[in-house]
Nucleic acid binder design. Structure first.
Lengths: 108, 108
DNA sequence: TAGACTGTTCGATGTGAACCGAACACTAGT
DNA sequence: ACTAGTGTTCGGTTCACATCGAACAGTCTA
């Protein structure tokens, strides 16, 4: 049985995401910070609030929603927190090489 | 000796372009159409006016300037025309895999 | 059940980018 | 010189998105 909170958590399958959506999601520095952070840690170890970001929590929440809609992250509720993981294998299958190209070159 | 026209044609070295600029340039469908077209033809065979794009020539000119500033294309004057080439090797060196990832997946 | 904590939603604002028509600039042929 | 063709620049409009504060919704603990 899923709670009301979990029900509002809709995920987009990376296979159904178009390139435009993917690139728009990646073309924001805050969202790339989130992805960098996720790529550097184990899955399900980072809650939304634990990221060091130069925006308020409202904006933060918005960015996580965009990443979810682009098939770039998956989220799971754990008590009051929302844990994250980067969907590397799924996204790589939909857009081979894209994530690696973007993540490897940053910080530049 | 360069003409006044050629003097206004400034090119950005891909090595000096930051990821943000590169991704913003790639995150536009019209600009990706241009790049697709360039990737499918030999260098210096396509003038700006020969692309099939859903925008006026003013907007078209703007997009070519953005691509130039992102180090994605090089332009050369040939009489009244301005010929183009995609800077694949240079851009690949600055952002390995990025161009391939973006171009290979389109049309989608 | 009261309070602390985490995250989302709402309404509003500011900024930047895409876009267009018109005017301008350069080139080449007549 | 005139004209046609190609491309840039300018001024202005429109629109999407990042951003914020405030209010709201769950969850957990005391």
């Amino acid at each position: 049985m899923s709670t009301a909170r979990a029900r509002s958590l809709t995920h987009e399958d990376p296979a159904g995401v178009d390139l435009q959506t993917a690139l728009e999601a990646l073309a924001d520095p805050v969202r790339r910070m989130i992805l960098q952070d996720l790529a550097a840690h184990d899955d399900w170890t980072r809650a939304c609030g634990t990221f060091d970001l130069p925006v308020t929590k409202a904006t933060r929440s918005h960015h996580f929603a965009v990443l979810r809609a682009a098939g770039l992250i998956e989220q799971r509720d754990d008590g009051p927190r929302r844990l994250n993981r980067i969907r590397r294998p799924e996204f790589d299958q939909a857009f081979p090489g894209l994530l690696a190209a973007v993540l490897d070159v940053s910080g530049r």
